[in-house]
Computed example of a mutant assay.
Amino acid sequence: MLTVKLPQLLNIHQVPQVFRTDGIISGYRHPKSSALDCILSSFRMTNETLNIWTHFLPTWYFLWRFLVLSTSLDFCTDPYNWPLLLYLLVICLYPFTSSCAHTFSTMSPHACHFCYFLDYGALSLYSLGCAFTYSAYIMPDRWINSPLHLHFTQLATLNSFICTALSCYSRFLELEAPKLSKVLRTAAFVHPFIFDNVPLLYRLLFCWGDGCAWNAAIPLHFHHLFFAFLAGFLFASHLPERLAPGRFDYVGHSHQLFHVCAVLGTHFQLEAILVDMSSRKPWLTSHTPPATLLGTLGVVGAAVLGNLAIIGLFARILLWSPRATSILQSTASEGTKLKE
């Protein structure tokens, strides 16, 4: 019978710095794993296993929702549905990319950085997808056709570039200034989140009476914001593993909980968008011009190309910069002592 022997799991002192996570002491995969080892490791318990599955399984859930909605909505010829189409594509993309990043990040230090560069790019596109739906369906009535509304998606595209560039750059600071690296990476994702949600926060907190679009979507928006804030807190705090290093190595550490909260937040966000989209359609279609291919697919295409260019730039720096060499080789002597 064919058997596969996977490399033994390691502790934090046996892997190079680039693979280490604060508060996680054991369960690390070999830092020179093959692609097959990485795939097979998702079926054994490591400190990354639940990180992989908490985004891989939701990918299929969101894909299922996409397919179901495609049977009832006209995504081809009805411009009103195009922002939702873009949003559905990116909520399938970002968890899948994250799952792949966690799966293959231990092939090498280079692979670790490249995987997370792509992960950051997918999250940036998710923020842009949110901006499209918020501009089309969430904007308060009294803000429709305002300067902010008219330029909302263009500004969100710029934010996606900032998000990708800042988060990729933060990886170069992890060894010399880990706290600054964490601050920059957190800020990279908080910034587009706040921008995207300005219309919603105004609608929920400061808008009363006519023109505020109070409807059945409001409780769902509050649920989405609750899980989004909780996800941000977990990402930034490294709790609970920071309080008890080693106790949550395999189950219950902050990144797993962050994934779960992010997916739940996206679920409630999707449900709220669908309610607003349906209930506000008569008013919105009569007060706003229809979406155009240039304003939707054209903007998203430019955003994809721009984010890929930014990722390519940082990948080039990683490969050729003398400073990047020190990041890749830090504590490499520890890694070379590992038994193959």
Rank of each mutant, 00 (worst) to 15 (best):
N11F: 03
I12S: 06
T331R: 08
C261P: 00
Y134M: 11
P58K: 03
I273N: 00
T97N: 11
I25Q: 11
C212T: 10
C163S: 12
Q329N: 09
F172S: 10
L294Q: 10
V90W: 00
P219C: 09
N159F: 12
W53I: 04
F268Y: 15
D119H: 07
G312L: 07
P109C: 14
A262H: 01
E334L: 14
L328Q: 08
L123T: 12
I25K: 09
L57W: 10
D74E: 10
Q269E: 12
F172I: 06
W53K: 02
A131H: 02
P79C: 09
G298T: 05
F258K: 01
Y28W: 08
R316N: 13
F222D: 02
A315C: 14
F193G: 10
G301I: 07
D141A: 13
P282W: 11
W64S: 11
T97K: 03
Y87L: 13
G23I: 06
S326V: 10
R171M: 13
L257G: 06
C130R: 01
L166D: 00
L284Q: 06
L10Q: 02
A216K: 13
H55D: 05
N197Y: 08
T292E: 03
T285L: 04
V299P: 00
V4F: 14
R65Y: 03
R142D: 01
H238L: 06
M107K: 14
